[in-house]
Design a protein around this nucleic acid. Structure first.
Length: 421
RNA sequence: CGGAAAGUGGCUCAACUUGGUAGAGCACUACAUUUGGGAUGUAGGGGUUGCAGGUUCAAAUCCUGUCUUUCCGACCA
């Protein structure tokens, strides 16, 4: 990518919002744009990062046998009436954006249980078709009463949502546990420290559900973490009357030695049981040819929150002042930024072409009339994990690759440069 | 939805208390010098102060209404 084409704005780091520095830098660059409270446009960096995150999620889901599909964002009122959720989402809860025209009434997808159940039941006619898991990645719309923290709680956001279909409650639990493991794999690859947290009602009857809480200073929740079992407890649970019962079922005896973390919820899984199958009257045929309801589960991951979390968790400061951020190498959409001075322009272009031809995603700073120092500092603004500077110290032979975060430098010859990426 | 704060060039803010033709830094444009960790000089462009109404000879400033944004809380598949 050519920096001359990106047209980022010059920014003053002293003006940056210290609470959400990473996202505010992107706002000031013009790489994030707020249309109104909770509604954003995404620039190249965010979009490319989203593709990276998406790819990791898709790979892990596909590996475990999930099937990628896509449901409409514009959902007819009648399917929400079929599950008796229209009033719940438009009146009692007021969660769904709705629109009405001469064709009828619609809701903008806040989630997709209705779509998934209809879609699944249309083809999962027999017990022989089960289990099955469908997932999609796309924009969701919710009338959040209060937006917060830029892309941490907006009104439109990108989410992965998966829906599983099983024959029995036992099978549903197996699928649920399988997805638990898939989620752990995903967050591991994303380099995000995650705490699986059983929801308050998860253990004591009711809906079984768990949250995947990422450790971050900006978190909305406070989680006590039991490392030996790898489970978390939401602080708010401790206020409840049945806390002892809850803790004993989680096999936690002493909460005093558990470490507390600020976290933000990135994923949320639920055992739905037969709720949607029954309410929408959609069934499969069992071995005896009788109608049986599907045991379903649903699983969500917020991509926007993941990206916000990655960016904010990697903000860099120097002497208390915000310097920018540096993305982890494995998830950075652009791996290296090439900087040159006038004398080395040709060498810079050659290097850029060489890396690009070998499928290494690079940024070349081909803007005019900027000092080397300016260009180096812009590496921090864009979060590129490595940089190669072709300045006065460049001898046309030894390329110095610098790690943006650690500032470690490594000298390599052009013949060996591909091995560094 | 309850509570609080803020709206003034692209950004961050000043002027408001005590009404008198809107100012700074950064950014932007041009030229020159600079070019290894956010340079310098000179010249220049850009705002009728969120919107509407009222008071007044005169409103960014006082009054009323309204819209928007942010923060705290409640809510949160």
């Amino acid at each position: 990518m050519r920096l001359s084409k990106l047209n980022i704005k010059k920014i003053n780091l002293n003006d940056v919002d210290t609470n959400y520095a990473g996202q505010d830098i992107l706002m000031k660059l013009g790489e994030l744009y707020q249309f109104e409270s909770g509604i954003y446009g995404y620039g190249n960096l965010w979009t490319k990062l989203e593709r990276v995150v998406e790819t990791i999620i898709i790979e892990e889901l596909d590996k475990s046998g999930c099937i990628q599909v896509e449901f409409p964002k514009l959902q007819p009122k009648k399917i929400w009436e079929q599950s008796n959720r229209w009033d719940m989402y438009t009146k009692e809860g007021d969660i769904m954006f709705t629109l009405e025209n001469n064709l009828g009434e619609y809701g903008l997808a806040p989630t997709a249980e209705e779509c998934a159940t209809l879609f699944g039941a249309n083809r999962l006619l027999s017990y022989k078709n089960l289990p099955a898991i469908y997932y999609q990645i796309g924009e969701k719309f919710r009338k959040e009463m209060r937006t917060r923290g830029y892309l941490f709680r907006p009104r439109t956001f990108v989410m992965m949502d998966a829906y599983s279909f099983d024959k029995t409650e036992e099978d549903m639990k197996k699928t649920y546990n399988q997805m638990h493991q898939v989620y752990l794999n995903i967050f591991k690859r994303l380099n995000i420290p995650i705490i699986p947290t059983i929801s308050d009602n998860g253990v004591i009857g009711g809906k079984v559900a768990e949250e995947f809480q990422a450790i971050t200073d900006l978190g909305e929740d406070k989680i006590l973490y039991d490392e030996t079992q790898n489970i978390g407890i939401n602080r708010e649970v401790l206020e409840f009357e049945n806390r002892e019962e809850y803790l004993s079922q989680l096999n936690i005896k002493d909460i005093n030695h558990l470490k507390e973390y600020n976290t933000v919820e990135l994923g949320n899984n639920f055992q739905l049981g037969t709720k949607y199958s029954e309410s929408m009257k959609l069934y499969y045929k069992d071995e005896k040819g009788e109608d049986k309801p599907y045991y379903m589960g649903c699983y969500g991951i917020g991509l926007g929150r993941i990206i916000a979390c990655i960016i904010e968790n990697n903000v860099m400061k120097e002497e208390g002042k915000i310097k920018g951020f540096a993305l982890p190498y494995t998830i950075a959409p652009y791996k290296v930024q090439i900087i040159y001075n006038e004398n080395n322009k040709e060498e810079g272009e050659k290097l850029y072409n060489y890396l690009t031809e070998n499928n290494i995603k690079a940024i070349i700073d081909d803007r005019e009339n900027l000092s080397i120092g300016n260009r180096i500092n812009d590496v921090y603004i864009l979060g590129t994990p490595k940089m190669i500077i072709l300045g006065n110290q460049f001898d046309k032979e030894n390329y110095c690759i610098e790690d943006t975060k650690t500032k470690e430098k490594k000298i390599v010859k052009i013949d060996n440069i591909l091995e560094e990426f």
